[in-house]
Design a binder for these strands. Structure first.
Lengths: 135, 135
DNA sequence: ATGTATGCAAAACATTTGCACCTGG
DNA sequence: CCAGGTGCAAATGTTTTGCATACAT
């Protein structure tokens, strides 16, 4: 019942929002650009503008439904927030993204931040490399 | 003798390149956008176009003289490569950047990448937070 | 009804590129 | 001299915004 997520976020349940949420939820690739989503909408025969996709994603981000990442290469990618924090391994050749999470690293980050007098709001560890399939 | 760095990189020693390198070397803020550098050049009375700043920075990056970072917020920032790898703590309010380096984290990253079949080309750990002075 | 959301086109940015002119070795 | 570098303006690619219309409650 995904409409709940929208209502909970204080957003009206509209067709574009539901469609976009649906794409984020059902895609097996978890990291999509606004254009990726736009293209999928067109393919599905939906009449939704690219501007709306950006607007909706920005609202989703503000509502905590989605995370925006700035990986290398111009476009931002959006990922459905599934609750479990994790970091990313990105293949610089094919764009494949692997998620990982390591408590040792997490703890170290907290320690370093507090020593530097920073109150963490967010953090992003992204390792860029070449995946097995691209070698 | 910074002209050496340029020659070593196979780049002609031209006025724009020297000026830009000089700014990167002497600035006490280590992370500058192309516009930051452009503005400083204008203030110093140099007749250098923004396009040239971008071109030169891109060449410097290719030559390994400079690293380009994509922190949050549109513009890329450039940092003189001083040899010692490090990660960043960025204040989301004032933009201050603190550098750090932790061998435990580095080692974990290598381990995680190799387990996932990735050959690391680069990595970026950036912690976003609010620094002491902004609270 | 009515306030919010959308679509479209235009604007706003950051960055790159084409091209005629200039410069360093 | 001559390849390579630069300045300017125009092009590009991504994301945002203004505004008139359409929609959810």
């Amino acid at each position: 019942m995904e409409t709940q997520d929208l209502k909970k976020a204080g957003l009206k349940v509209t067709l574009p929002r539901m469609k976009i949420l649906e794409i984020l939820e059902t895609s097996n690739v978890h990291h999509l650009t606004a254009e990726d989503i736009y293209r999928q909408l067109l393919e599905a025969g939906e009449e939704i503008g690219l501007a709306t996709v950006y607007r909706v994603l920005t609202q989703f981000e503000a509502a905590g439904l989605v995370t925006r990442h700035h990986f290398e290469g111009g476009q931002a990618v959006f990922e459905l927030e599934r609750g479990a924090h994790h970091d990313h391994l990105v293949c610089v050749k094919c764009g494949k993204v692997v998620e990982f999470m390591d408590e040792t690293i997490e703890a170290k980050q907290r320690q370093i931040s507090s020593e530097a007098g920073f109150e963490i709001t967010d953090h992003a560890l992204t390792i860029y490399g070449i995946c097995r399939d691209c070698r």
